[in-house]
Design a protein around this nucleic acid. Structure first.
Lengths: 213, 213
DNA sequence: GTGTAACCACACCGGTGGGTATACTCCCGA
DNA sequence: TCGGGAGTATACCCACCGGTGTGGTTACAC
């Protein structure tokens, strides 16, 4: 379900350059305000080539969102590998967010931004954005359930909200430590729901279930 | 500081119509994708009139954001009047959000959307959006401080994040009860910081300090 | 009764948007 | 050796964008 396509076609050198350039421009300046002409120029490519490779702006946008989504998910799963307990895994998602925001997220969440800019409800890019949000929330619910919480959503949903809120605090208010603040709040929230540093009583560890989607 | 201008000029009938129509269009379709021609048509007005009243699209956008911001702040302060304790005031902001989202916020936070769409850092609309975020967070910090919490931001910042997260959950995931979920989490968070239903020990009530900016 | 503010109707501007057409070059593999 | 995929270069299309100018009509105020 997570896999975006049966096989991501290798991408020609020019196509890779286009996607790279477009990703940067779309993220930093917004999708609607960046024209294909500019993308072509910055990628040292003609518009013809872009349309030969990607077909339309819409498809280029989707490719941009998908690759970025993949990178973020990889980021998260990387951080998860180092976490042993469900509680640690929840906290690891906040650590991932912290690192992510420090590196490549000054202008807020690309998915959310795209969701806003692509106001046409039928635009396929919106589904990508929504998918990412749903994925993270599901992941959190999974961990919370592993920790033995009866109704996982009651805890997982607020945890997801802390994620989103942290990104906003970072993007709009410039709060560089927002993810860590959110992490601390997540700890508090988990503790209140009985999820502590201790391993839960009678719940199977099911250790390697992390990288799965 | 909160007052937007020395005096909001009365607005001619046509101007009011323009602002109303533009607000709806900007919010539901996005600022960048709505042209002045469409606004004019929907308001039964010529473009000339729009430019006579507002000067430029940028200024119309700012007027849109300001009026919406004012309405939201009024919404919050209305809900605050019914709340007696600091804790109740914090929770009242979530109730306000719940009501607000039910009535006129299906497409997420207008301020955040504008912040995203107006990628030019110099656009005055961004300041309006940022101002609103800062205002709410400051308000929450005020209440938390009144409740006797030593470092108010440690609690107020996560509370603000829950706000933002709830709006995202509503806008992207369609979670209509998101604000109530956030409210419950806020209760938990406050309890963990010693903010309970009881009135704090030696803190002056300072009752009417709510409506002030 | 003459200004002036608030409008309408309409025509026009340069710029830019996404997207296409044509024609030519380079290089690699069958 | 030759076909085809990957590119380049350039010119073009039309729709729409934000914004302006001209000229005219109503209604109210001094």
């Amino acid at each position: 379900m997570t896999a975006t396509a049966p096989a991501t076609r290798p991408l020609t050198p020019a196509a890779r350059r286009i996607l790279e350039v477009a990703s940067e421009l779309f993220y930093t300046r917004g999708i609607n305000t960046v024209g294909m002409e500019l993308v072509a120029e910055r990628a040292s490519v003609t518009k013809k080539t872009i349309y030969d490779r990607f077909g339309s702006k819409q498809e280029l946008v989707v490719a941009y969102l998908r690759t970025r989504d993949d990178r973020w998910r990889g980021y998260v799963t990387d951080h998860l590998e180092r976490a042993a307990t469900p509680r640690a895994r929840v906290l690891a998602t906040f650590d991932a967010l912290h690192a992510w925001m420090g590196e490549e997220n000054p202008r807020g969440c690309a998915m959310l931004n795209a969701y806003t800019e692509l106001s046409d409800p039928g635009h396929p890019g919106r589904a990508v954005a929504e998918g990412q949000k749903r994925w993270l929330r599901g992941l959190l619910a999974e961990f919370v359930a592993e920790a033995g919480v009866a109704d996982p959503d009651v805890l997982a949903h607020p945890l997801a909200m802390l994620h989103e809120g942290a990104v906003v605090a970072r993007g709009v208010l410039g709060e560089t430590g927002a993810a860590l603040t959110a992490r601390a709040a997540a700890e508090t929230l988990m503790a209140a729901h009985g999820v502590t540093g201790d391993v839960p009583a009678a719940v199977a560890p099911a250790s390697a279930a992390v990288t799965a989607s």
